[in-house]
Amino acid sequence: MGTQFLTDENGNKTAVLLPIKKYNKLIEHLEDLEDVKLYDEAKKNDDGYRISLEDAFKIIEEKRKISK
């Protein structure tokens, strides 16, 4: 089964029907593209500032104590 189209009364394509394998592959590609987009955005906004993992956990724990 290939891709099928639903049409209106004038023959204009209004929707697409695809096999689930094709749909899942399409979703997978879209998710990959979104990952690339997020990476590019993060890289563009990178100011070079880094903290250690231990310091990050300390900050998180301090914020949790304050919010309680």
Score class of each variant (00 low, 15 high):
G2V: 08
T3G: 11
T3Q: 15
T3Y: 15
Q4W: 06
Q4A: 15
F5H: 03
F5M: 01
F5T: 03
F5C: 00
L6Q: 12
L6N: 14
T7E: 15
T7M: 11
T7I: 15
D8G: 06
E9M: 09
E9D: 14
G11R: 04
G11C: 05
G11A: 08
N12C: 04
N12I: 09
K13Y: 09
K13F: 06
K13C: 05
T14S: 07
A15E: 14
V16A: 12
V16N: 02
L18A: 10
L18P: 00
P19A: 14
K21R: 14
K21L: 12
K21Y: 06
K21I: 09
K21M: 07
K22M: 14
Y23S: 03
Y23R: 03
Y23A: 06
Y23D: 02
N24L: 14
K25A: 08
K25M: 05
K25F: 02
L26R: 13
L26D: 12
E28F: 11
H29I: 02
H29S: 06
H29R: 08
L30W: 01
L30A: 02
E31F: 09
D32S: 11
D32K: 12
D32I: 09
L33Y: 04
L33M: 14
L33G: 15
E34W: 02
E34N: 11
E34R: 12
D35C: 03
D35L: 11
D35P: 00
D35Q: 11
D35N: 12
K37H: 12
K37W: 15
K37N: 07
L38P: 00
L38G: 00
L38E: 07
L38H: 04
Y39P: 00
D40T: 10
D40Y: 07
D40M: 13
K43I: 08
K44G: 01
K44N: 12
N45L: 10
N45Y: 01
N45K: 05
D46F: 10
D46L: 03
D47K: 08
D47Y: 01
Y49L: 09
R50I: 13
R50Q: 04
I51D: 02
I51C: 01
I51A: 01
E54C: 01
D55I: 02
A56F: 13
A56M: 07
A56K: 08
A56G: 07
F57E: 14
K58V: 13
K58D: 11
E61V: 11
E61I: 12
E61Q: 07
E61T: 09
E62S: 04
K63L: 14
K63V: 04
K63D: 07
S67M: 08
S67I: 10
K68V: 10
K68Q: 13
